[in-house]
């Protein structure tokens, strides 16, 4: 039991010395990413003509929308101290489910809004399965979700079959360039999800218990929090948001595609970590992730406008995730620390 107090040598050491680095670290986590975003934006504005325009700003927000939806789910999971690698698989499975249930050129289904709801439900089921295997069979979350990532891709491959299914439902097709109250539809969804995640994290029992579990699972258990139940709920939410992201991306493409989520895992996980949400859990939150997503989208957009090879963007994201993880964990390094 890790709840058992051990009169450990390390305890006293932490008590006396940890407070100052902790404050520095918090400052680094909260202000650092925001400063980086501003610096990045200013640099591109100065160096790249065409970056600091209203149109480009709108493009950036639109590009950030789907990653934001995905990253909010990811944030909740990471706040628990777990991780969800199944984003791309769930997106693909949900995207194809949606296309094949809505009006399309492959079958006679025309469920309309119900297709939308069912597709997101499929994502939620993926999340519940992730959560249940993780908590009941006690398998580390990265391993479970690595498996379901490919299960989702496999399901999408099976659903895809041999010919590309095209979305023919006019209501949904209209979302692709459409606006609600003058705001592009994807941005509406992204805004709703972001605000929702923020409210949940700040004010709800679910959100606060998520922070508690991520802060110290053993202590939370001793305090009587049903840790497993909350974990499953959070994974379920993350799955549903991945599903929503998959559906929105599919609507944008207009066709069902197995690789609809390609590259999104990176983008979301990098954004979460970069925003200052610690992989060890309990610290950070939706606003951090918002900044993280914007940094990455601005970086990608700026690089593209400066004429860089599009793959450089992927390489940069790979580097960013490594640097961000190491930088945020640097203050707690120790000669004898063991991390697997």
């Amino acid at each position: 039991m890790s709840a058992t107090p051990v009169h450990d040598v390390a305890t006293l050491e932490q008590q006396s010395t940890v407070s100052r680095p902790k404050n520095n670290r918090r400052l680094l986590l909260s202000a650092g990413p925001a400063v980086a975003l501003v610096v990045l934006a200013v640099a591109f504005a100065v160096l790249t003509p065409g970056f600091a325009t209203v149109n480009n700003a709108r493009a950036i927000v639109e590009q950030a929308s789907i990653p934001l939806v995905l990253a909010m789910g990811s944030t909740l999971v990471v706040l628990l101290g777990s991780v969800d690698l199944s984003v791309e698989g769930v997106m693909a499975a949900c995207g194809l489910t949606f296309v094949l249930l809505a009006s399309n050129n492959r079958n006679d289904n025309d469920l309309g809004w119900l297709a939308f709801v069912i597709a997101i439900g499929v994502g939620a089921v993926f999340g519940v399965v992730n959560g249940l295997i993780h908590t009941r069979i006690r398998v580390p979350s990265f391993m479970v979700t690595l498996g379901t990532w490919f299960i989702g891709l496999g399901m999408a491959t099976v659903l895809f079959g041999t010919t590309t299914p095209q979305l023919q439902d006019q209501t949904f097709r209209a979302w692709a360039g459409g606006r609600w109250l003058g705001v592009p539809v994807v941005i509406v969804f992204a805004a709703l999800v972001t605000v929702g995640a923020f409210v949940v994290c700040r004010y709800s029992k679910l959100g606060r218990y998520t922070y508690a579990i991520g802060g110290d699972e053993a202590v939370s258990r001793v305090a009587g929090i049903p840790v497993n139940r909350f974990k499953v709920i959070v994974f379920c939410l993350a799955g549903a948001l991945s599903g929503l992201g998959g559906v929105l991306a599919t609507i944008r493409l207009g066709v069902g595609d197995v690789s609809v989520g390609s590259g999104q895992l990176f983008l979301t996980l990098s954004a979460v970590v970069l925003g200052g949400t610690l992989l060890s859990g309990g610290r950070g939150g939706p606003l951090h992730t918002l900044v993280g997503v914007l940094i990455l989208v601005v970086l990608g957009n700026g690089l593209l406008l400066s004429g860089a090879n599009p793959y450089v963007q992927q390489a940069a994201q790979g580097l960013v995730i490594v640097i961000a993880v190491i930088a945020t964990g640097w203050p707690v390094r120790d000669r004898l620390r063991v991390v697997k």
Partner: peptide, 23 residues
């Protein structure tokens, strides 16, 4: 030496070296 979980670093490496292959 960074003392961070291996799955994150290797995920970052996956993205980075994947891009290098493409380039």
């Amino acid at each position: 030496w960074g003392q961070v979980p291996s799955f994150v670093i290797s995920l970052g490496a996956l993205g980075f070296w994947g891009a290098v292959s493409l380039v």
